[in-house]
């Protein structure tokens, strides 16, 4: 399914967080959203998973206005891996993952056999099967991130949005998570801080600054030395990855270089 942000604006407390943002995510594409802290990336995502109502503009899924659906209906199509993983109650890992089925179930309806298998496969894919009976409060940050992604996958969405999914993950799990996203066949909109990971993982990248889309395109088109300096205020040399050919940034700590 295709996801389209159409002239999205968000104003809270008189502050413009997102201004007239338009961005397309083609069916099955992985599109990255990058930008400095406070540039409105997470705010834009929140509109997609219905945690926030945009002040103007629309989020469209296959051309249909998402805000016309109930939250429940849109959660059957769009899943999110968010930043507020703060849990108070000590659910077990398998319980949290099973909650991913919520938009497909009525009341306290139990999971079917197929759904339980779905949960087990998701745990296998994210390498957390051994944690199934552990309490989520006892997990490390990285383990918890993987549990949250498993929950989003179990939701069986067509569209997946992720807010800095690689936070807290070690290198191996960062790479595994992004390659899982690439191989998932889902339409993915992902906020990433690491530009090199974004360049490797994304079909297209949108760059945000002060709530506005500065530019969008393939990693080669977007990640230039000028843009990185202009938007992020750092000097970087762009080189081509020796194996994949993706653009990769090399940073210098010495401003005189």
């Amino acid at each position: 399914m295709e996801l389209r942000l159409d002239g999205l604006s968000v104003v809270t407390d008189g502050r413009s967080l997102v201004r007239d943002l338009s961005l397309d995510v083609g069916s099955g594409q992985v599109v990255g959203l990058v930008g400095p802290n406070g540039s409105g990336k997470s705010t834009a995502l929140r509109c997609v998973y219905r945690a926030l109502r945009p002040s103007s503009g629309t989020v469209r899924v296959d051309g249909k206005d998402l805000s016309r659906l109930t939250v429940r209906r849109s959660a059957q199509v769009v899943a999110a891996m968010t930043q507020d993983g703060a849990l108070e109650l000590d659910f077990t890992v398998e319980e949290v993952i099973a909650l991913g089925r919520t938009p497909h179930l009525r009341g306290n309806q139990a999971l079917s056999r197929r759904e339980r298998e779905l949960c087990e496969r998701a745990m296998d894919r994210l390498d957390i099967r051994h944690l199934a009976r552990r309490g989520v409060l006892t997990l490390s940050g990285g383990e918890r991130q993987r549990v949250l992604l498993a929950r989003a996958l179990v939701q069986e969405p067509a569209i997946l949005v992720l807010d800095e999914p690689t936070n807290h993950l070690d290198v191996r799990h960062q790479v595994e998570l992004l390659s899982l996203l690439r191989g998932s066949g889902l339409t993915v909109l992902v906020v990433l801080h690491d530009l090199n990971l974004a360049a490797s993982a994304c079909d297209r990248i949108g760059v945000l600054r002060d709530g506005r889309l500065v530019t969008a395109g393939t990693p080669e088109e977007v990640l230039t030395e000028d843009l990185v300096h202009d938007v992020f205020g750092v000097r970087a040399s762009v080189v081509s990855h020796p194996l994949t050919g993706d653009p990769q940034l090399l940073y210098s700590l010495d401003p005189s270089l």
Binding site: D84, L87, F91
Partner: peptide, 19 residues
């Protein structure tokens, strides 16, 4: 019961799970 489970996960998560 399940809605309470989801609410306990936080507002962002609850919204993304359709509650």
């Amino acid at each position: 019961g399940r809605a309470l489970d989801v609410l306990a996960l936080g507002d962002e998560t609850a919204a993304s799970l359709g509650v």
